[in-house]
Nucleic acid binder design. Structure first.
Ligand SMILES: [Mn+2]
Ligand SMILES: [Mn+2]
Ligand SMILES: [Zn+2]
Ligand SMILES: [Zn+2]
Lengths: 140, 140
DNA sequence: GCTTGCGCCGCAACTGAGTTGCAACAATGA
DNA sequence: TCATTGTTGCAACTCAGTTGCGGCGCAAGC
């Protein structure tokens, strides 16, 4: 039932005062339907035939969704961004897991991150990026 | 006194059974002399005139140094690798700090990393990547 | 010291993710 | 319905990193 996600996506976008274009809705719905964080390429592949967007549009839409706090993007060691929808219980600060076998990335939402890292004198803390690497259940 | 680092570098390379070429020694000495992790570009700039290497050679040499455990490389959100020498007290598992102002990256060697992250059932832990972001003393 | 073989180096071409400029288009609000 | 303004598609670009290959030079053996 992808329909549900399309409806939710449109709601989320309108609540942020943005134009509810087919592209934004489709991309956000795709990310809402996904259990893991996926790349630009993977999003492109999952979009329905009726919604083939230019790659640049896809990049710009993802940027807009990130800036408006509807999704977040994750750094990885393969130099490719991965994106995931910001569900409500999704705390802004959370860790991620990356499988070294299949490159799958998931959010570890229930992993609270310590904020008190002892930095050198004069340094100011802002945020943390934490990726646990290992093998997922399929790759073990 | 860069000379000292060149000597140390040559020693380290020979102890690993590798050919002690001018390029390897110069690159490793450059990293030994550095207090922070630096990029491919920055290494290139710091190499003396007498040792201008092709960029591909630089990439391949860095790869060799990483594989032989003499240096390590660090992922970053700007899609550029940064490299740092493996000094002896350098534990393999340590965190890094990246300044959001000047992009400087340093190793937080004395920051012990918890190894027992609660992963989903069936997942196997391998290693961790932790980057603290904030402002360095200069950028505060 | 001289020779030789294997590994290292430089060059050219390529890959692939992400960015920029600009003109055409379409969602919204009047 | 129309005008405004933000969004889209296209072409060209940037930039880090990779690959293939011929030639050079380090180190081992004489
Ligand atoms: Mn996440
Ligand atoms: Mn380090
Ligand atoms: Zn896996
Ligand atoms: Zn700084």
């Amino acid at each position: 039932m992808l329909n549900k996600f399309y409806h939710t996506a449109e709601d989320m976008i309108r609540h942020h005062g943005g134009r509810a274009t087919a592209g934004r809705i489709g991309i956000l719905a795709t990310l809402l339907a996904e259990q893991q964080a996926i790349t630009h390429r993977e999003i492109e592949q999952r979009l329905p035939q009726s919604l083939q967007l230019d790659r640049v549009t896809l990049y710009r839409t993802l940027e807009w969704l990130v800036e408006n706090g509807l999704i977040h993007k994750i750094t990885s060691d393969d130099r490719v961004w991965r994106y995931n929808a910001n569900l409500e219980p999704h705390s802004h600060q959370h860790a991620h897991f990356k499988c070294t076998g299949c490159a799958q990335v998931i959010c570890l939402d229930n992993l609270p991150i310590e904020q008190n890292w002892p930095l050198p004198t004069g340094y100011r803390f802002q945020e943390i990026e934490l990726t646990v690497k290992g093998l997922c259940a399929n790759c073990c």
